[in-house]
Write a protein that binds this DNA or RNA. Structure first.
Lengths: 127, 127
DNA sequence: TGTTGACTTAAACCATGGTTTAAGTCGTAT
DNA sequence: ATACGACTTAAACCATGGTTTAAGTCAACA
């Protein structure tokens, strides 16, 4: 298996190293191995877990939620139902948030349209 | 013109009163009138402005951005171009965020599918 | 051998976006 | 008159999600 350093992991995921350390401290990245010098070693699996963290973070799951999920991952197959339920719930929350944003975007579009019209009126006035 | 109290405004917009006071303090709600006793009076226009704040907040514009926008609103028609540019930029940012969320949601769907399959395999194993 | 450069830690620090508290002022109904 | 509910303020407090700092360890290269 190939391992990579924290700087390589950070580059792959486009995250600051400090963030990765912070995530590990918060329990979002359990079971990270270390070399003899105490440096973190990220396996492909760890990188995949980190990608999952990023994916959940991108969809605004709080740290506490991601930690719960990762605790269940570590716990093993007995928690599959729990993880499934969590992901289904989270998906619903994300879709709701996207809906809200999409809806609110309409209000922004109204302003854009209005401002464009006002600008045009000004220009007509100048002609 | 009809005015309403902070509690009525809070009820209309489904916001805590404390949040409305906080927004005013931060400069997001300029020109709020007061009665003789110092109580805030919200006109229809103020309510509309507050709705705009909520709309921008729902689309994750930071307080500092909303304040800039409101400062421009107060400044008047000379700032229409600036407001238009800001709203166009913001719209782009919101669409990008929605894209990121939508993309990340795929990763979540992958997990949902996988967990459902794993559950089914377990059940087959039990038969 | 010594000096880089990449890593380590704990703790302090920061920004953001509110919420809560404490103390006080009104207007009105009893 | 007084007591209640709705309002006011400034300041303290809180959670979240990191980032920065300071001090140290280690491996490898000149």
């Amino acid at each position: 298996m190939k391992y990579c350093s924290i700087s390589e992991a950070a580059a792959k995921l486009n995250l600051p190293e400090s963030t990765i350390r912070y995530y590990e401290k918060k329990g979002l990245l359990p079971l990270i191995e270390r070399d003899e010098a105490g440096r973190r070693l990220f396996s492909e699996d760890q990188i995949a877990l980190l990608e999952t963290v990023v994916c959940l973070k991108n969809t605004h799951m709080p740290i506490s939620g991601i930690k719960q999920y990762m605790d269940w991952v570590v716990e093993g197959d007995d928690t599959i139902e729990l993880r499934l339920a969590m992901m289904k719930n989270h998906k619903r929350a994300v879709l709701a948030e996207i809906s809200l944003m999409t809806e609110s975007l309409k209000g922004i579009d109204v302003k854009i349209t209005r401002y464009i019209n006002q600008k045009n009126k000004e220009e007509e006035g100048l002609i």
